[in-house]
């Protein structure tokens, strides 16, 4: 494996982790503020992709129109959902809220199927950002992925400044842990909730706009991302933006590395055997014969398969050893 390969794979992982962050940022703020795990959060990500595809490709406007418009539109939809959905359901308790968001996720998925169909839409990278930005060795790194990185980092910095440098940001931070007390001080917490919900959904939509050209735009997109962002907010610590960023990057980079790795039990056995100078007849056989062996599944097991489990494993470990998450503040 050469350095070019490692560098670009790392960058791929960063790009992936950063778009995970865009989605999980809203989820973690909403969760810790309202105490509701919003199952529909990833649905806004998916809607972002579809709306952008419609605007950029079906209507023939450009990706650059979709980029600002889609988050605004979906952010507004998010606020309506909070104001007229979640807030009404709130009186009936958390279970009702969970069921509501669950139903909403389902509804969005069926809506998407009905309106856009089940097929994978040919949502593509905009013309301007097609092609490689640079080449290391024989590996290229696409301009679009670099663009994803730049957009996500700008959003993180913007959010960070908003939360730590502005009065609204402080109110939000305070409301993350003590919404009632903030209300009692005369701040309109329901309005803040609605705004945060709106911004959170807008960010998820933005992630959909910039990530789905490299992924598959289809009605299953939300269901595939949902579990990952849930893992991220738990690992990062509920309500912690930096935690979400940190966990997103860890999971983005490591899952990409796992995907790129080609180690398997048999390849490790081979390396060890070579090292010891042992000639081993098993290794001469074609892989399909190896697979048929009694222990075939075991010796063919690869880091890829382990990699798919990795985020969940990490979550379980965190829940056991650091339940408040890597950068979480409160134990809950």
């Amino acid at each position: 494996m050469d350095w070019g390969f490692i560098t670009v794979t790392l960058l791929d992982g960063v790009a992936r982790g950063l778009y995970f962050f865009l989605v999980s940022a809203g989820l973690t703020l909403i969760f810790s503020m309202m105490g509701v795990l919003n199952f529909a959060h990833a649905s806004f990500f998916m809607l972002g992709g579809y709306f952008a595809y419609i605007i950029a490709q079906e209507w023939g406007l450009s990706f650059w129109v979709a980029l600002p418009v889609v988050p605004l539109v979906i952010g507004a939809i998010g606020m309506v959902v909070e104001r007229f959905g979640l807030r009404q359901v709130h009186k009936f308790g958390h279970v009702a809220e969970l069921i509501f968001t669950f139903g909403l996720a389902f509804l969005v998925q069926e809506f998407v199927k009905l309106v856009f169909g089940n097929d994978t839409k040919p949502y593509a990278v905009p013309e301007l950002l097609k092609g490689p930005l640079f080449t290391i060795g024989d590996q290229t790194f696409g301009s679009f992925r670099a663009f994803m990185i730049v957009v996500s980092i700008s959003i993180f910095i913007g959010l960070y400044l908003l939360l730590t440098r502005t009065r609204v940001g402080m109110i939000i931070q305070a409301a993350l842990t003590h919404p009632n007390t903030v209300s009692n001080l005369g701040h309109n917490v329901p309005l803040i909730f609605m705004a945060v919900f709106g911004v959170g959904t807008a960010l998820a939509a933005l992630a959909g706009v910039i990530a789905l050209p490299t992924d598959a735009l289809q009605p299953g997109a939300a269901a595939r991302l949902g579990p990952i962002i849930f893992v991220i907010i738990v690992v990062g610590g509920l309500g912690s933006l930096s935690g979400a960023l940190f966990a997103s990057l860890i999971i983005g980079v490591l899952t990409t590395m796992f995907d790129a790795s080609q180690l398997s039990v048999i390849s490790i056995m081979e390396a060890v055997a070579n090292l010891l100078g042992i000639e081993w007849s098993l290794l001469e056989r074609p892989t399909y014969e190896l697979r048929r062996l009694m222990v075939g599944d075991l010796i063919m097991m690869s880091t890829k398969q382990v990699g798919a489990l990795f985020p969940y494993l990490l979550m379980v470990l965190i829940l056991i050893f650091r339940p408040q998450g890597l950068l979480g503040k409160r134990e809950s």
């Binding site: 842990t177 007390t181 903030v182 005369g186 701040h187 309109n188």
Partner: peptide
Amino acid sequence: DVFPGLTVKQNLNLGVKPGQ
């Protein structure tokens, strides 16, 4: 319930109501 993560000064400032 002081607001953790915010300084004493920031806590005090949050007592000021909007439009006060």
